[in-house]
Design a protein around this nucleic acid. Structure first.
Length: 677
DNA sequence: ATTAATCCAGTTTTT
DNA sequence: CTGGATTAAT
């Protein structure tokens, strides 16, 4: 029984009557057990699992809770609960309603946005510079996530009055971008939520209860989504002291105004901390007391042992700090998996990782960005994307650009030509071209100073260079080969593309597809170019040993991807899972290297919070751009409350690489570790 | 105009 | 180590 393990407070919360319930759960007070208990209670009272919606901050957290439910009930029941992040749940529901969705990597659509933006000409009447494309993209995303019922213009006016004059142009760019997205069926993270909001107007959902974990990090857009489901009951769990996503629009007022927004709502409080020892909690509380208290909290310590007092480590230089920590970790009796190094900024991670490696300590970094950002993985994913959505222009261009003498422009020409000879379908154009279309490269709009805009007719090139290569006649006769700038090498690359597409069409399973890609000439050619490039030295020569180790590395990456794919049977689901949950993946084992944000919800026996210098933690640059000291303090609170038994806080007064002097973080003073001088 | 090569700066946090 | 900008070459 999931309820029998709960203490009185947890039990009261978990068995609350349906309605609007908020549980304030401080760090380490058994929030997850309470949610699992709540789900158990709902199921016991006869509510069907598919009438329960569980929203968490990461998909991993959702999966873990579902696993725990499965222990008490059967797996089928547990898995019938609709669960995941706001984004992944929206994705599932949108897909169910047959909305065309191709989820793209965030950076991809940003690039598309920038390309739309660059075509605009700004007439500057004032000396206020307009935002650049990338920044505007981020701002618009923040607007979508953080605004209530304002227009972009009024919102912009509040953020930066000077920028208001450009909003008409900005909105026009955004409109064109949205049109383009619609045309290709592309969707970004924000679209998942906004499209879901639209779908809620068409469909009705009969969720009896929605459970929301990490409620303090809900933003207004997500708030609208919650209300849009019109659930009979809402069960929210959170802690305002752990709200750390303001940069993403999360609004602490959402949790603090819960009782006024929902009439007759009930607020529960969990205040018994089972995680950390008394000295660690004392320190955390001492610091967070400096923030305004929203709901009264009095954390009760369950573990009174005092043998490990949080220790302050001071160093003269950044790397001496990392070195010392590495040595300390070697000496520790704890297993490496039970230890974590937590930092405010990801820029700390490289130095730490290098020092751990030197000391022979295994470590894993969360946020597999480097993994999914690697070219070889992108190539494979783009190929799979193309097999799912054959007309995906961005995926096509990325792949074809690897061909010699084929850049963006020619790749786009080829894409459009293929659509022409395929009557709107890229694969038809490739595999069964309409050869009666003699000139697939009809025109390209060209601006000429004298003539203005005119159609530049592309002269058809010769295809004789492709004869006698043993190609399929079908491909040899394809008129797309007549592009005048297509070289022999480029053509051969295209032929490899043709054969791989033809072969992959027969494969439906992600893992088999990766296996096939891996040994195909098309992929091998790309890996060869990639690794040669990586092994190129300053003088232009190729270092063979670097090259072979690069090849080994990329082979390992492909193997990792293959591993990840084995859990999936559907191509599209696999792709989207990689985009939605990719950041949660971590490779290998060992000491955990985490940003404070990534550490949310986790706990470790031994924790090092490092680089506690004023400017870096709190991050002053961010504070000047709309952050706040309160938010930085909450970050500090989150970081230290990850520790169960042992906590180290460290700082260094000098960075010899950047030649910067540092002063310790004010939080150390607030914690009483440094006396006022 | 387009591609390839070269050099330079920069690096907040996440779905 | 990579993306962006600049430059050289076609």
């Amino acid at each position: 029984m999931p309820l029998s393990n709960l203490n009185n407070e947890q039990h009261a919360s978990a068995t609350a009557i349906l309605g609007h319930n908020l549980t304030i759960a401080s760090a380490g007070t058994g929030k997850t057990s309470t949610i699992v208990g709540r789900i158990g209670h709902l199921l016991h009272s006869g509510i069907k699992p598919d009438q329960i919606l569980l929203l968490t901050f990461t998909n991993k957290a959702a999966a873990e809770m579902i696993m725990r439910v499965a222990k008490f009930f059967d797996e089928t029941t547990a898995k019938a609960i609709v669960s995941g992040t706001f984004h992944s749940v929206s994705y599932k529901l949108l897909k169910k309603s047959d909305k065309p969705i191709t989820l793209k990597q965030p950076s991809e659509l940003k690039t598309l946005f920038k390309s739309v933006y660059e075509k605009r000409v700004f007439v500057n009447q004032t000396d206020v510079k307009p935002y650049d494309g990338g920044y505007l993209y981020d701002m618009y995303s923040l607007y979508l996530n953080s605004s209530y019922d304002e227009t972009f213009e009024t919102w912009m006016g509040k953020i930066n009055e000077d920028q208001k004059q450009y909003t008409l142009i900005y909105e026009d760019v955004i409109a064109e971008f949205n049109k383009l997205k619609k045309q290709y069926g592309y969707v970004n993270f924000d679209d998942l939520l906004t499209n879901m909001l639209e779908l809620q107007k068409e469909n009705t959902y009969d969720f009896v209860e929605i459970l929301v974990d990490e409620y303090q990090d809900t933003n207004p857009l997500q708030g609208k989504l919650l209300d849009g489901f019109k659930p009979k009951s809402l069960f929210c769990v959170g802690d305002y002291d752990q709200s750390i996503y303001a940069f993403n629009g999360s609004d602490i007022n959402i949790i603090s105004s819960f009782h006024t927004r929902y009439d007759g709502s009930t607020i529960f409080t969990l205040d018994k901390n089972y995680r950390s020892t008394a000295p660690i909690l004392d320190l955390a509380n001492k610091v967070i007391q400096n923030n305004p208290r929203i709901y009264e909290k009095s954390l009760k310590v369950v573990r009174p042992e005092r043998e490990h007092v949080p220790q302050l480590l001071k160093f003269d230089e950044l790397y001496i700090q990392y070195e010392y920590i590495a040595k300390n970790i070697v000496k520790s009796k704890n297993k490496t998996e039970d230890m974590a190094i937590i930092y405010r900024n990801n820029s700390s991670a490289d130095g730490i990782e290098a020092n751990l490696r030197d000391a022979g300590i295994e470590c894993k970094r969360k946020g597999g960005h480097s993994f999914f950002d690697s070219r070889e993985i992108k190539v494979i994913l783009d190929l799979i994307v193309l097999m799912v959505n054959s007309n995906d222009m961005m995926a096509f261009i990325h792949l074809i650009e690897y061909g010699k003498n084929i850049g963006k422009a020619i790749a786009k020409d080829i894409f459009e030509a293929l659509l022409r000879v395929g009557h709107g379908n890229l694969f038809h154009g490739l595999l069964n071209p309409d050869n009666s279309i003699i000139k697939p490269y009809q025109s390209r709009k060209v601006t000429n100073v004298q003539l203005g805009l005119f159609d530049d007719f592309i002269e058809m090139g010769s295809v004789s260079k492709f004869k006698d290569l043993g190609w399929d006649v079908k491909f040899l006769n394809n008129n797309i080969l007549k592009h005048p700038k297509l070289t022999l090498e480029g053509g051969i690359f295209l032929y490899d593309f043709y054969t791989i597409v033809k072969e992959l069409k027969r494969i439906q399973n992600p893992k088999n597809m990766i296996i096939h890609i891996q040994k195909h000439k098309f992929f091998e050619t790309i890996i060869e170019t990639l690794c040669t490039h990586r092994a190129k030295q300053k003088d232009g020569t190729i270092n063979e040993s670097i090259k072979s180790s690069a090849k080994l590395k990329s082979h390992r990456r492909v193997e990792t991807l293959k591993q990840l794919s084995s859990r999936h049977t559907n191509l599209q689901n696999f792709i989207n899972a990689m985009i939605l949950g990719g950041g949660e993946m971590s490779e290998g084992g060992g000491v955990n290297l985490l940003s404070v944000h990534a550490s949310k919800g986790l706990e470790f026996k031994e924790v090092y919070v490092v680089d506690l210098m004023d400017g870096r933690f709190p991050n002053r640059t961010l504070m000047s751009k709309g952050g706040s000291l309160e938010e930085e303090r909450r970050l500090f609170y989150v970081a230290v409350t990850r520790a169960k038994d042992i906590l180290y806080l460290s700082y260094a007064s000098y960075d010899r690489i950047k030649k910067l002097d540092f002063v310790f973080s004010p939080f150390l003073q607030e914690a009483g570790l440094i006396k006022d001088s």
